[in-house]
Design a binder for these strands. Structure first.
Length: 766
RNA sequence: GCCGCGGUGGCGGAAUUGGCUUACGCGCACGGUUCAAAACCGUGUGAGGGCAACCUCGUGUGGGUUCGAGUCCCACCCGCGGCACCA
C-alpha cells in the first residue's frame, strides 16, 4: 500500500479527537507548559501559509513536550472584533456576527486539517458577551484606578464619507475607501495611561526571554530620555519651559522655538506682539497641513518670529527671540525647544572619549531655580476609543448631574445591541449613537436620565488578556480562577509576528502588570519567552496579496501533497525567525522525503538492533540529540535536515531494525504527526505515538569512534587520514610524517612547530 | 539620522562557536525504468586549469590578529526590518 496522505490524515485527526489526548488538565501532577500563539482574526480569506508556519512550529514543540511528560496547555480562540466584518456589513447588510461565525467555521476546518493538536474545549471568542464581560470589567478597574481618562484628541476624519477612520484605514494621508484626503477632527476620546507603566515596561524586559530585536524595538518605541526642564522668563512675567537633554549647551542657546499649538502663542497674540497677522497666517497654514505634509515636508523647515517679545536666557540674562515653527512637536516634552545651532551631540561624545572638560551644571541650575530634572517618553497614552460598531461597548454612562459614571459590575456585560443598519452617523460618532433606546439609560447613581458612552474599544482590548481566559474559559464569576492562574501562568512560550511587537505585545504586558497590581494575576510579566516567526512571502519575493494574485492557499497544498508535507516544508524552508519566499518545488521535496520514510517501513524487521551496523546506531543517537535540542531552540530547519540524513543512511542499510525505525518515527512525529502515527500503528502498536515517551540519547553511543584527521601544512589542508577519535599527538605525528603527500610538501624544509587539535587536525608549520 | 538584523554555490540555506566551507533540500546535467512521463530510481554538481593524481582561487570590500578566520578586531560598502523634526 502506498502513501496516501488524504486518507490517513483524516483518519488520525478524527481518532485524536475521539481519544481527547490533547486536552490540558488543571492541577495535574505533571509539570505544566503553557504554549501560545497569537490567536487569529477570522478573516474571510482563511488561513495564510504564514499562519501555518507559526502554528506548526508550536505544534511541534507541544507534541514533543507532551511526549516528554509535560501537561501542556495549547489553546485556540478568535480575535473576532474588527473592521473588515463591519465594512462587509456596511456593504452587504450581513451582520458581523453572522460573518464571524461563518469565518470561524472555515478557520476551524483548516486548523483541524493541518493536524494542530489544540485543546478545543478551551476555545474562546472576543465577541462573545461572556468573554467581553471581563474585557469591560478590566476597563472599569482601570477607570476606577484613574488610569482611564478622557481628553480631546484628533481622529482621522474623511470629509467625503463623513466617518472617523482607524489609522490603518488611512493610506498615504488618504481615505482607504474613497481616496479623499483625510483631515484631523478633534473629539473627546478615552485614553489609557500606559505611560505610567513606561519605566516598568522597559525595566522588566530584563526578566523575560525575548529576542533582542523585540526588546530593542519596545525600548525604542517607549523612547525614554532623561533631561532637564529649563524655565525661560518672557518679558511679561510669563515663562516658557523647555525640555533638553543637553542643559550644558544652554550658554550657546540663541533663540527659542515653540510649537504652533503651544498655549503661549495664543496669549502672546492677545498681548503686545508686533506682527500678529503674520503669526496668525502661519498658524492657518499649519492647520491646513495634514499629518503627512507636516512630516513629509520636514526637510524644509518653516516658521515665523513673534516680533517684539523676547525670552531671557537664564544663564547669562541675554534677550533672545521666540519663533513659532511646526517642526516642534506639541506632544513631546514641553512643546518648546531651545535652539543651540552651534552645538552638536558629537562634541559631547568627543569630549567624553578624550577626557576633555565637561562642566556639570545640572545641579547648579537646580540651586538657581532655573531647571529641574525631567524624563520624557516618546510613548503616548493609548487612545482607547473607536467610533465604530463592531467592538466592545465602553461600559460608562454620561449623567448631567453625576458626570461620568461606571456601569455597576453586576450589570456587566454591556451588550452590543443588534443593529440592522451600520451607516455612519456623519458626526464622527459610532453607529451606536443612532440607537436611541440603547443610548438612553438611567444613571446608575442618581437614577436620573443619562446617556451611554457610544465609543467602542479598539481591537487591542480583547487581545490584551485573552491568554488568561484560556485558563478558565467558562468561569462566570471572575475572569479566571486564581488557583488556576497560579498553576498555569506565566505563558512559557509565546510566538507571534514582529508586527505586534510595539502594539499588542506592549499593551498586553501593560494590562498584565495592572492586573498584577490589583491582585488579580500572580506575576507582573505574562510571557516568559517570546519568539517571532518570519513572514512567508510569495514566490516572487513580494508580500502575498489578492491584488497581486500571488497568494498560496494552504488548503490547496494540503489537498495536493498532504498536511504533513506542508507542515514539514514550513519548518524546513529556512530559519524560523527569518522572512522567506515560498517555493512550490520545496513542498515536492518534502513529499519525496515522506515517501522514503513510508517505504522504509516495508524493509523493517523485528530483530535486535545489536545486529545492525554500529554506524547507524551512532547516527540514531546523534539524531535524537540534534532533533531534541533543535526543537528547543526553534531551529526546526536543521532538525529536519538531520532527520533526512538519518533516513538517507537507513535507506542504505540492508536490514533495518524495528526499534531504530521506531525512534525515527518518534522524532518525526512532532513535524509530520499523521504519517508517523500511521506507520507507528502499522508496526503493531496499539497506543498513540503521542502517548509514548520521547526517545533519549546515550552520549556514549552518540560519540564518534573514528574520525577523519585533517592534515594541514601551514594551515592548508593537504591530506586526510582515518584515525581513532582519541589518537594521541605522538601517534598522529608519526602517521602524518610517514605520508607520501606530506613528505613531498616538507622535503628540504625545517619543521618549525606542530599544532595538534585532538580529534580534529594536525598542522605542520614549516 | 537612530536602533536591530543580515550579506556563504544557479536558489533556500548548513557550519559542534577559531579547525575539511557549502550539510540538508530545490534546481540542473547525465544515466536507468518507461510507448511516454514525474510528485520514480541511480550518479554527478563552487569557479578556473589539467588525460590524470593534483594545483590555484573562493564566504560583500579593504586592512589586521592567528599555525589556521565565514566566525575575532578596525575601517567601509550594500540589503532588510523598526522608529524618526523626539529637542
Amino acid at each position: 500500500m502506498g502513501y496516501n496522505p488524504q486518507k490517513i490524515e483524516k483518519k488520525w485527526q478524527k481518532k485524536w479527537e475521539e481519544l481527547g489526548i490533547f486536552k490540558a488538565k488543571n492541577f495535574s501532577k505533571k509539570p505544566k507548559k503553557y504554549i501560545l500563539f497569537e490567536f487569529p482574526y477570522p478573516s474571510g480569506e482563511g488561513l495564510h501559509v504564514g499562519h501555518c508556519r507559526s502554528y506548526t512550529a508550536l505544534d511541534a514543540v507541544v507534541r514533543k513536550k507532551r511526549m516528554e511528560g509535560y501537561n501542556v496547555l495549547f489553546p485556540i480562540g478568535w480575535d473576532a472584533f474588527g473592521l473588515p466584518a463591519e465594512n462587509f456589513a456596511l456593504k452587504t447588510g450581513v451582520h458581523p456576527q453572522k460573518t464571524t461565525i461563518k469565518n470561524i467555521a472555515n478557520f476551524k476546518k483548516q486548523f483541524k486539517g493541518l493536524g494542530i493538536s489544540l485543546d478545543w474545549d478551551r476555545e474562546i471568542n472576543t465577541t462573545d458577551p461572556k468573554y467581553y464581560k471581563y474585557t469591560q470589567w478590566i476597563f472599569l478597574k482601570l477607570f476606577e484606578k484613574g488610569l482611564a481618562y478622557q481628553a480631546k484628541m484628533p481622529i482621522n476624519w474623511c470629509p467625503s464619507c463623513k466617518i472617523g477612520l482607524a489609522n490603518e484605514e488611512v493610506v498615504d494621508g488618504k481615505c482607504e475607501r474613497c481616496g479623499a484626503t483625510t483631515e484631523k477632527k478633534v473629539r473627546k476620546q478615552w485614553l489609557l495611561k500606559i505611560t505610567k507603566y513606561a519605566d516598568r515596561l522597559i525595566d522588566d524586559l530584563k526578566k523575560v526571554d525575548y529576542p533582542e530585536r523585540v526588546k530593542s524595538q519596545q525600548i525604542n518605541w517607549i523612547g525614554r530620555s532623561e533631561g532637564v526642564i529649563v524655565k525661560f522668563k518672557v518679558k511679561s512675567s510669563k515663562f516658557i519651559e523647555v525640555f533638553t537633554t543637553r542643559p550644558d549647551t544652554l550658554f550657546g542657546c540663541t533663540y527659542l522655538v515653540v510649537a504652533p499649538e503651544h498655549e503661549i502663542v495664543d496669549s502672546l497674540l492677545k498681548s503686545k506682539i508686533q506682527n500678529p497677522e503674520e503669526v496668525k497666517d502661519y498658524l492657518e497654514i499649519v492647520k491646513k497641513k495634514s499629518d503627512l505634509e507636516r512630516t513629509e515636508l520636514a526637510k524644509e523647515k518653516t516658521g515665523v518670529e513673534m516680533k517684539g517679545v523676547k525670552a531671557i536666557n537664564p544663564v547669562d540674562d541675554k534677550e533672545i527671540p521666540i519663533w513659532v515653527a511646526d517642526y516642534v512637536l506639541p506632544h513631546y516634552g514641553t512643546g518648546a525647544i531651545m535652539a543651540v545651532p552651534a552645538h552638536d551631540q558629537r562634541d559631547f561624545e568627543f569630549a567624553k572619549k578624550y577626557g576633555l572638560e565637561i562642566k556639570k551644571i545640572t545641579k547648579w541650575f537646580r540651586e538657581k531655580g532655573i531647571g529641574k530634572k525631567a524624563i520624557n517618553y516618546k510613548l503616548r497614552d493609548w487612545v482607547f476609543s473607536r467610533q465604530h460598531y463592531w467592538g466592545e461597548p465602553i461600559p460608562l454612562v454620561h449623567c448631567k448631574k453625576c458626570g461620568v459614571v461606571a456601569i455597576p459590575e453586576k450589570d456587566l456585560p454591556v451588550e452590543l445591541p443588534y443593529l440592522k443598519k451600520y451607516q455612519p452617523t456623519g458626526t464622527g460618532e459610532s453607529p451606536l449613537a443612532n440607537v436611541k433606546e440603547w443610548v438612553d439609560v438611567k444613571c446608575p447613581k442618581c437614577k436620573g436620565p443619562a446617556k451611554r458612552e457610544t465609543d467602542t474599544m479598539p481591537n487591542w482590548a480583547g487581545s490584551s488578556w485573552y491568554f488568561l481566559r484560556y485558563i478558565d474559559p467558562k468561569n462566570n464569576k471572575v475572569l479566571a480562577d486564581k488557583k488556576k492562574l497560579k498553576y498555569w501562568m506565566p505563558v512559557d512560550w509565546y510566538n507571534g509576528g514582529m508586527e505586534h511587537t510595539t502594539l499588542h505585545l506592549l499593551y498586553s504586558r501593560f494590562w498584565y502588570k495592572f492586573l498584577f497590581d490589583i491582585g488579580v494575576v500572580p506575576q507582573d510579566e505574562p510571557y516568559q519567552k517570546r519568539t517571532s516567526h518570519g513572514m512567508v512571502l510569495a514566490e516572487d519575493g513580494r508580500k502575498m496579496s489578492k491584488s497581486l494574485g500571488n497568494v498560496i492557499n494552504p488548503d490547496d497544498i494540503v489537498q495536493k501533497f498532504g498536511a504533513d508535507s506542508l507542515r514539514l516544508y514550513e519548518m524546513f524552508m529556512g530559519p524560523f525567525e527569518q522572512a522567506i519566499s515560498w517555493n512550490n518545488q520545496g513542498v515536492v521535496g518534502m513529499r519525496r522525503f515522506l515517501e522514503k520514510v513510508w517505504k522504509l517501513s516495508q524493509r523493517t524487521e523485528n530483530r535486535e538492533q545489536r545486529t545492525e551496523n554500529n554506524n547507524l546506531e551512532r547516527l540514531v543517537h546523534q539524531t535524537i540529540k540534534k532533533v531534541s535540542e533543535d526543537i528547543e531552540s526553534f531551529k526546526f530547519n536543521t532538525a529536519i535536515s538531520q532527520l533526512m540524513v538519518l533516513v538517507n543512511a537507513m535507506e542504505k542499510q540492508k536490514e533495518l531494525s524495528a526499534s531504530n525505525y521506531q525512534v525515527l518515527l518518534k522524532l518525526l512525529s512532532p513535524f509530520a504527526p499523521h504519517i508517523a502515527e500511521e506507520l507507528w500503528h502499522q508496526l503493531g502498536s496499539k497506543k498513540s505515538i503521542f502517548e509514548e515517551e520521547w526517545p533519549e540519547y546515550n552520549s556514549k553511543l552518540a560519540k564518534e569512534e573514528k574520525i577523519i584527521l585533517i592534515i594541514q601544512i601551514n594551515g592548508r589542508v593537504r591530506d586526510k587520514i582515518e584515525a581513532t577519535a582519541d589518537i594521541s599527538e605522538k601517534e598522529a605525528k608519526e602517521l602524518t610524517l610517514n605520508r607520501e603527500k606530506v613528505k613531498k610538501w616538507i622535503e628540504g624544509k625545517t619543521i618549525k612547530k606542530v599544532i595538534f587539535v585532538k580529534g580534529r587536525l594536525i598542522n605542520i608549520v614549516i
